[in-house]
């Protein structure tokens, strides 16, 4: 398939993040995997808006060909939302550690019984 190289990297990042989420037992590593998955999505949005030769979507510079500004706005929204959800996730991890004394999900599961 004649996909751009960046799209393959998007797939690799998405898969790596998902693998990390599904196989890791440390809650903090799961948060890291979630961040990598989100980064793959952001790279997809930004690459989708670009074709070689484009310039940044700023007027007043005399540029005619520019990248699509709509996916850029979506990317910006996604970055900030990802940061605030990560903050909430990490707060829950701290509270879970306070309650169970560990961040390993297997130990937490055995202590829940």
């Amino acid at each position: 398939m004649a996909l751009p190289v960046a799209y393959w990297v998007v797939l690799i990042l998405f898969g790596m993040g998902l693998y990390c989420i599904l196989t890791e037992r440390n809650l903090i590593k799961i948060a890291v995997g979630l961040n990598i998955m989100e980064a793959g999505l952001l790279l997809f949005l930004v690459r989708m808006a670009y074709s070689p030769g484009d310039r940044a979507p700023l007027l007043g510079t005399g540029v005619i060909r520019m990248a699509d500004p709509i996916p850029h706005a979506l990317t910006l929204t996604a970055i900030v939302i990802a940061a605030s959800t990560t903050a909430l996730l990490l707060s829950f991890i701290i509270q879970i550690h306070r309650h169970y004394g560990t961040v390993d999900i297997d130990e937490i599961r055995s202590k829940m019984k």
Partner: peptide, 30 residues
Amino acid sequence: IYQAPDAAMAEAVVGAGLVTALFLVTISKT
């Protein structure tokens, strides 16, 4: 390089500054 300076600025500040700080706080608390 992909001509998205707004998104680049947000990713640099959020990813390298804020989220890393929050992760480090979590590690030190747990």
